[in-house]
Design a protein around this nucleic acid. Structure first.
Lengths: 157, 157
DNA sequence: CTTAATTGGTTGCAAGTGAGACTAGTTTAG
DNA sequence: CTAAACTAGTCTCACTTGCAACCAATTAAG
């Protein structure tokens, strides 16, 4: 008969680990800056790309449902952390970018999050960290999770 | 200024990967057997330990909230997949175990899930898989996620 | 041109889940 | 023995989120 040890079962471990890490990080963006995960993802996507982009694009590259992104965008607009301008070519779509205020928050938050990540991974040696990242790369690629294109606003998509 | 590439940020990657893997697996336990994740976790814990155990124990070792486990137990009882007997020593607690029916389902499901896991990890070499598991070990330990004890029903806890 | 299909984005709804109150039973302290 | 502290499990509440219907704008087909 087949045996399964839940604690050696990778899908379970990934779930548990992701939940725990999210929880640890939420201390930073949630408690300190009042952002939830979808909001943080929008901020991160806009902050990393200096270019403006659409909600659709953010949804696709963060693999988050468009309704979730839509709600996050609404909140961030209300807080003045992002700005939205109509796209002159396609009047359905909007171009999103960080506001000056949002950029300030982003620049404050990033070092904290990177420190937290570093902290979590500090139990691994440098080589182990590289290997771990490499394994994630391969698994993501094989599951087709990778965003190969970073389309610019002009991209048809 | 600090830069953060969301796609190289481990917490984000873990979240996305865990969600994707869960989704892939749910095909098996959800679609085929009508179990959701908490229900599956209860089944897996009971199936792996031949011993009976309490809801509390399942909650602790799967790191799932006790109310979530409680609901899963209720559903599984109604479906006759598990059995519950009063604990003669402590009348607050119940001993849970798989029913014959539940055991049959478990034995059918396990090979499918293991195959799916193998499939997901097949993009890694044997050595990479070992390294990956090892890295998970270390991170889990450093985050104190590891269930060091497998308490038996007599355990005070 | 006109109609149908598609796409960006929003919203209502329902299912799932964590927090925490609550009940019942147990243990510890005095 | 009694009261206080604690624990197992259930339940209600609030919140999050995925789904699907929807609206408006755009593009494709006839």
């Amino acid at each position: 008969m087949a045996e399964l040890d839940l604690f050696r079962f990778v899908p379970f471990r990934l779930n548990r680990l992701a939940a725990e890490v999210s929880h640890a990080l939420s201390e930073e963006y949630q408690t300190l800056y009042g952002l939830d995960i979808p909001e943080w993802r929008v901020m991160a996507t806009l902050g990393f790309r200096d270019d403006a982009c659409s909600a659709q694009f953010i949804a696709q590259c963060t693999r988050t449902h468009k309704s979730t992104i839509s709600r996050a965008v609404t909140t961030l607009l209300a807080r003045g952390l992002i700005e939205r301008v109509e796209n002159s070519i396609d009047r359905r779509a909007f171009e999103l970018r960080l506001s000056r205020h949002g950029k300030t928050l982003y620049d404050e938050l990033i070092p904290r999050l990177l420190a937290k990540e570093k902290d979590i991974l500090s139990c691994l040696t440098a080589q182990e960290r590289r290997d771990f990242a490499h394994a994630l790369d391969k698994i993501e690629r094989s599951l087709d999770l990778v965003q190969t294109r970073h389309p610019h606003k002009a991209d048809a998509y």
